[in-house]
């Protein structure tokens, strides 16, 4: 799906936990996430900490959308 969205001409960022799969599929902007069943959260944290974690990760995704890339790029911390 990420590749078809890109092909349609819309910049897209893929947020996922298993980065090697995203690379194999062909995503260009990739933000690694927390865990498979809760990519943008962590039930072990308090509600507030979890919210901050999610905001940080999605913020990184927004940053990735603003960043020019010329190939597959993983946006780590």
């Amino acid at each position: 799906m990420v590749k078809e969205i890109e092909r349609a001409g819309i910049p897209v960022v893929h947020m996922c936990t298993v980065v090697p799969i995203s690379l194999t599929v062909g995503a260009n902007r990739i933000v690694p996430t927390v865990a498979i069943p809760h990519p943008l959260g962590n039930p072990a944290l308090s509600h507030e900490e979890e919210h901050d974690l999610r905001k940080k990760l999605v913020g990184r995704a927004l940053k990735a959308l603003e960043t020019p890339v010329d190939g597959q790029t993983v946006f780590e911390e």
Partner: peptide, 10 residues
């Protein structure tokens, strides 16, 4: 008019 997409996967 969407200009960017965030796609999340599990």
């Amino acid at each position: 008019g969407v200009q960017a997409v965030i796609l999340t996967s599990t």
